[in-house]
Amino acid sequence: MEIKTKHLEYTYQKNSPFEKRALIDINITIPHHSYTAVIGHTGSGKSTLLQHLNGLLQPTGGEIQIGDFVIRSDKKKKGLKALRKKVGIVFQFPEHQLFEETVEKDICFGPMNFGVPEQEAKLRAKEALKLVGLSEEYLERSPFDLSGGQMRRIAIAGVLAMQPEVLVLDEPTAGLDPRGRTEIMEMFYSLYKNYGLSIVLVTHSMEDASKYADYIIVMHKGSVYKHGTPREIFDKPEELIKLGLDVPESIRFQLKLEKRLGIQISDQPNLSIEELTESILSYLKWGVTQ
C-alpha cells in the first residue's frame, strides 16, 4: 500500500490567535512494502505527520492518499475504520494503553472492535504473540505482572493482531535498555522482511535510521528538509549538524578523525562502525585511497 501526500498542510487551532502551522507543503511518497524512517527534532512536525497516516488528523490543506483512501481538507472524513485496520500506529510508551485482565483479552480488544469474531481474534492473539517473540504461556497472564519490555511487546502484539499492512512506530524503543532496544528493532525488521509489512519509523536514533531504513525523511520546522536513501541523507553530514540534528556515531567520528588527519579516509560517509573500521584499517595500511 502506497502512501502519498500532495501539498499537505496542517495548522493547529486554525483561524484562532493560537494558530500554529505544524506542517507546510509536504510532498512525500512512502512506497509499497518499504521501511521509511522519519527524523527531525522535537517540534519538527514528525508526530503531526504521523497522525495523518491513519486519518487521526485531517489535513487543513492539500491531501494524503493512503492506498485507495484519499483524505482531503475540503471533504468530510469517511471510511476511516477500514483505513485504520490497514495502518496500525504504535504510539510512544504503548504499554500505558494496556488495560485488560489478561494478555489474550488485551490483544483481542483491537480486532474485536473491528468486528472480528472472538474465535478468530483469539487465533490472531496467538499468532501476534509469536511475532513479538513471546510464548503462548503469556496469554492467561495479567499484562500488569510483566516487565516493561514484555508489556511493550504485548501492546505491539495488540496492533499486529489487527493485521495492518503498514506499521507506524513512534519512538518504539524509548525507555528500553540496550538489549531490549536491539531485540525490538530486529523484530520490526523481521516483520518487514518476512511478513511483508511496511514500516514507518519515527526516531531520534540516527543509527537505527541508517541501519534499518531504506528511505529517510528529514523534517525541519514543519517542512521536509530532505529525503532519500540513508547514504543520500548523510552524504553532507555538516548540513544536518547545522540543523541541530545528529548524524550516526560512525560519521561523527569520521569527521573528527579526518579533521585531525587533514585528509579524507574514505570517499563517502561511513554509515556503520564496520564501514568505519574498514576505512581506518585501509588508511593505516595504504594511506589515502583516492
Partner: peptide, 13 residues
Amino acid sequence: GLDIPFTTKLVKG
C-alpha cells in the same frame, strides 16, 4: 543487557 560505548567498540575492531 547493556552496551559498549562507541569508542570502545571501535578500539576492539
